[in-house]
Amino acid sequence: MEIDKIDRIIDKHQSESSSLIQILLDIQSENHWLPKEALERVGEKLQVPSSRIQHIATFYKAFSLVPKGRHEVHICVGTACHVRGATQVLDIVQDLTGIKPGETDLDLKFSLETVNCLGCCALGPVMEIDGKTHGKMAPAKTAEVLKNYE
């Protein structure tokens, strides 16, 4: 990620250290992960020790310290989806992609995450790929959906 892009985000928040989380969120949403250089730049500009940045980047779920794959797969494991069989959906996705939640495959094809409630409980179990919601999932149907992604 280019330095001036990072600087622009920091400037948007007036370089205030109380905006640290908001700045990291903006970087995450633009770049999909937090590269080391970006964190160093933020620490330098905000005069915040990197221990505090690491603490925040590892505490909150929204941040990733590793690059993401081309397709981000989110399996909802909220309570409603869970009781409707989200575990089976998660299992089959893990089997087919060979990765666990929080991981990205070696070809950078898929990144897998579990999320707690996407708020579409009527459609549960829900799988979201690149922001598109796939509802009423079941093992065989999940396999069909995953086939469509290259």
């Binding site: 205030e16 250290s17 109380s18 905006s19 640290l20 989380i21 908001q22 990291l24 969120l25 925040i56 505490f59 909150y60 779920k61 929204a62 941040f63 707690n116």
Partner: peptide, 18 residues
């Protein structure tokens, strides 16, 4: 930024402080 515990009042305020 995604932490269930931040729904707790004092944790939320700490998060607001960055």
């Amino acid at each position: 930024a995604g932490a269930f515990v931040c729904g707790e009042s004092t944790a939320l305020m700490t998060a607001l402080e960055g």
